[in-house]
Design a protein around this nucleic acid. Structure first.
Lengths: 348, 348
DNA sequence: CTGTTAGCGCCTTCAG
DNA sequence: CTGAAGGCGCTAACAG
């Protein structure tokens, strides 16, 4: 028993498919007797329109796609949650595609989205703008969040990573720390590079020596890098990690090395994922409103899509870059004197 | 400039659309000269097949949908991660739809999936099987994970919640705790009810008095419920929370009340989300392999889908219910003597 | 091996 | 206000 089609409904109602379509889409005018006959038939056959077929006709799918490198950790899940909220609000669906190790795979993923989505949010840091545009057939609206410094031709959003990093280092310096190490993210990652650069700039400005270690944005790598650092003899008195996951790894490594945070070594992270306020000591970090960022991203994308549908009134002047400025959140891990416990547990 | 269609490619290559389709899908045989001409044209026009149109012809979309009540917390994000992994492995896409406050909304979401997905994974605990099947037009493969006790007509997966809860309580009893309270999840939630029942059974068996409090599966509610419990005078010496989020709220409430965990009051959670091993004291909880569960869910769904495509060799004998048995993970929060710190930071 | 021709299920002019 | 017919982009018989 196959699902009913619009034709079945028309037949049963004794009208044409056009009329059925009209009452279902709300377009055009339909006389009352016709309308009720249709509704009746729909009910009787428990008919549900086939959105795939509809998309083919209308040339709109009402779904937005998001391409991300990974789904690990709280950062991405919070981001997706924000996107989902916005999608729901706008009556759209969200299709996610992750785990793109390299540019080729990501490009393939993007291509496979054609005809499936009305627009794309791209977070794959491996893709440069050349590969990106060449993967895009026709003019599919795209919002870039991959941190790269684009030609400025695509609408994009980015975090002020360097600025945030500088703020972190300056805060540690102000607290009297002098041996500040940086556990950075993967070399290929743009955001990691920007945060590292901010660290280097602030350290240079203060006339100190940089101490660098490398991680992979994961807790395990933060643990390993910090352990190595502590075992190397030249114990730093502070660690600025490239993200919260690595900062938490650092926290654990410090504890395991028999040292205390913040007394012996302070720690500062980046992102302010929900877990940051739950670990002990509470993690001082750079807050970015992740959920809000995700929501904003789909809102902008949808605006872009609708602008395109409206036969673009004017050239893409809206191709601007939105910069998110992170805000330092002081908890206990940096050793600031004022820090209060703040164990509210107010997370929803 | 619109995107190229298969017709454009055929024209430029000087062949028929059928040949283009053949080389692109790999079906049928094509002579070498034709093949290369086609590939050339594809390249020149940077043609990408329109998956929506393809779906309409082939009657398969290669995407699976997941309907969930919410996207809060680590449980759902880990689950989605598992699903995403499996999808990628099988060359499918994942479309998520969440935030279904009530049954009507969830039913609407399910309907809107028709023609967009090949199958559905449903986690909305509000939907009973009646509403569910009536929302399903035709025979769309579905995998149920909403915990409800279905008629057994649909393939499903569920956690042995009652068994896990009993294990938790028995463990606390074995450690000498006597005043064991339960901070349960929302009344309408099936899983919450099952866990509570397991608690009640174990308490009754031990001839103790139950102490009940109510939460909402969130950290904040766990905090509030525990605070109230501690302020009520009859301080319990152990708390079994309905999930990890509430258990962590309990941890914070205990700390804020000036008591110590596990010395004064022990805590046990449920789920073993990643954060559980990061809080201090480490949370004793019931582990369920969330990522694996998500992966397994789409694997089963896809198997079901493919069985359907193969003109169902036999009646749905595979409509069985898979039960996941949670495993007690002992950390510090329950006060077990053997517990070692285990601060490996091995999470990826 | 290749081209022609129907559809897939729906929307949408265009006449009536 | 309603119906008939064409087409969205692609695949899948069926003939050549």
């Amino acid at each position: 028993m196959k699902a009913a089609t619009i034709r079945d409904v028309a037949e049963r109602a004794g009208v044409s498919v056009a009329s059925v379509s009209r009452v279902l889409t709300g377009a055009g005018v339909v006389a009352e007797p016709t309308r009720s006959k249709v509704l009746e038939a729909v009910e009787a056959l428990s008919y549900v329109p086939h959105s795939g077929a509809r998309s083919l006709s209308t040339n709109r799918t009402d779904v937005v796609g998001v391409i991300l490198p990974d789904l690990f950790g709280e950062f991405f899940s919070e981001l997706i949650r924000g996107m989902d909220v916005a999608c729901r609000q706008q009556g759209r669906h969200l299709i996610v595609s992750s785990s793109h190790d390299d540019a080729a795979v990501a490009a393939a993923a993007i291509r496979s989205m054609r005809g499936r989505v009305d627009g794309l949010i791209v977070l794959s840091p491996h893709l440069d703008s050349g590969e990106l545009t060449s993967s895009l057939s026709g003019r599919l609206p795209v919002l870039l969040m991959n941190g790269a410094d684009l030609d400025g031709q695509q609408p994009s959003m980015a975090v002020d990573n360097a600025g945030g990093a500088r703020a972190a280092v300056e805060h540690l310096l102000a607290l009297g720390r002098r041996q500040i190490a940086h556990v950075g993210g993967p070399a290929g990652n743009v955001e990691a590079r920007q945060r590292k650069q901010g660290y280097l700039d602030a350290i240079a400005l203060a006339d100190h020596e940089p101490i660098l270690a490398q991680g992979e944005f994961t807790q395990a790598s933060g643990f390993a890098a910090t352990s190595a650092l502590l075992a190397s003899g030249q114990t730093p008195d502070a660690i600025f990690a490239g993200n919260d996951a690595m900062a938490i790894g650092a926290l654990l490594a410090i504890q395991e090395a028999g040292l205390r945070c913040p007394d012996d070594v302070a720690v500062v992270g980046f992102d302010d994922v929900p877990i940051a306020e739950l670990v002990r000591p509470g993690l001082t970090t750079l807050n970015i409103d992740i959920v809000g960022m995700g929501r904003r991203a789909v809102e902008r994308l949808i605006a872009e899509i609708e602008r395109g549908e409206a036969a673009q009134p004017q050239a893409a002047n809206d191709a601007d870059r939105e910069i998110i400025v992170p805000r330092l959140v002081v908890r206990q891990s940096c050793g600031a004197p004022t820090s209060t416990p703040s164990l509210s547990g107010e997370r929803p």
